[in-house]
Every structure is written in structure tokens, then in C-alpha cells.
Amino acid sequence: MIRYLTVLTFAFLGAVPALAESFIVVQSTTSTQNSGLYDAILPQFTAASGIEVRVVAVGTGQAIKNARNCDGDVLLVHAKAAEEKFVAEGHGVSRADVMYNDFVIVGPEGDRAGIAGTSDAKAALTKIAVAQAPFASRGDDSGTHKKEMALWTAAGVDPTAHSGAWYRETGSGMGATLNVATAMGAYALTDRATWIAFANKGGQRIAVEGDAALFNQYGVIAVNPVRCPNVKAEAGQAFIDWLLGEAGQSAIAAYRRDGQQLFFPNAR
């Protein structure tokens, strides 16, 4: 039996390294993956370059940590300050703007905080805090979470003091957090792309949008091959060049869900 199992084991293992000859790993965010953007644009790059792109979609915070461990060739996230720090510390070669969209605050039909239809994010959060209306936060150090915390700080509210009461930190991805918000009838901050693509909206709708403070910039960084010798610098740079070039930018602009454009290219 042991002999048989061993044979079986190697048969399976032998089948495993059926890996593409040429691929790169991109550490990225759940928002870009869950919105379906990568499924739409990556095949175009692969067709043009012969390079397969493998996306690991986690929160921005974890994506940066993974890249810091050299476990990726390219970093594509949305937390400009953290990205610039990553480059300044020598983990990345340089940072470039790729595209943007915006964040929105979504909320339940009942709208306890009375913020529906407004466009001042700071004021809206203050109202939520005053009303002690349930708010579902990512709580996971992601790009969206960083943005949310910045908005709370601007509003002069420390929501974590109410954590477990009306303020709920899910510690999960955007989609999981939106599932919680839908189930609880809570407000939540989300990027617009994930929201549009999200299928379990229930009674939730956009309450606040259009504030300049809700701007959501995505940046791309090549992981530094000097720090990380395993990095596929050439293939990674080819992907970045494509993304920032005309082909990539127009592919991003062309991606739509329900007739709406989710990301707006703004590479310079």
C-alpha cells in the first residue's frame, strides 16, 4: 500500500509544476479584482507580450507587506502615502499614477443619519457618529480603510472608541464588509468600482458622493530588484509600461459594468 501511495504521490506532484514559462506576480487590492477589471484587461497584455500576470488580491496593507517580503514583481494598490513610503524605503523602484475613481459612502434605505444625497463626506461621518448609526469598517489596514480613517480624523471623530457598538470593524475585504453592511443596514465606505460590481446590495444605496476628499488614486510600483534578486524586473517593467501606455490606459477606460465606467486612467 505504501508503495502504491508513493507512486500516486509522485504522479500528482509530477503534474503540479505545469507552470507557465513566463509570468509575473502582481500584489494588488481586492477592489480591482472584485470589480472584474483584471479579468478584462490582463488577457490583452498577455496576448501582446506573452507574459502571464498572476494577481494576488489582498488588502493594500497586506499587499505592501507581501511586496516588502519580495513576494511579487509589481505592486498595484491605492494608498498614496504608504506607496511613497514603500518607494522611499527602497522597496520599490518608483511610483506612477495609473488610474482613479472615487469612494462613496453607502447606506441603508432608512438613512438614520440623514445623509443621503449630500456630498460632504466629513459632515456625513459626523452625522453618523452623532446618530450612532451602524457603520461597517474594513478594519484591515487596506487602502480603503486608510482613507476611511483619514476621513474620520478630518471629522474629528474617533470611531474606534465605539468599536463593537455602532462602529463595526469587520477585519475583512471590501466585499465581505459590504455583505455585513447589507445584512446590518449599516453605512460603509467603499470604492465605486467594487460597489457597482457588487451583487448583494440588498437595500443599500449610495448616500454620499462627489467630495474631492473621496478621490481614490491607484498607483503602480515595480518591486526593487536590488532588494529582491528574485524579482522579474524586465517582465514587471513591461507590464507597467503597458499599463501606463496607450494600450493599457484605453483598456482601463473601456472597462464597464452595467454601462458605467469603473476606473479612469490618469497616467502622465
Binding site: 506576480v25 481586492t30 483584471y38 498572476r54 466585499g175 465581505a176 455583505n179 447589507t182 457588487f198 451583487a199
Partner: peptide, 22 residues
């Protein structure tokens, strides 16, 4: 890493679909 076509299994696909609200 739940990479499409490379490391996506039944369970990670379920997690992904859940996070997409599907």
C-alpha cells in the same frame, strides 16, 4: 494567493464569490 487559473480552488473561489457579493 487565489490566482485565477493557477491557484484558485473550490474554497478560495467560494471566498472570492462571497466577497463579490455573488
Amino acid at each position: 494567493g487565489n490566482i485565477n487559473h493557477v491557484t484558485r480552488t473550490m474554497t478560495t473561489a467560494i471566498a472570492l464569490e462571497t466577497s463579490k457579493g455573488e
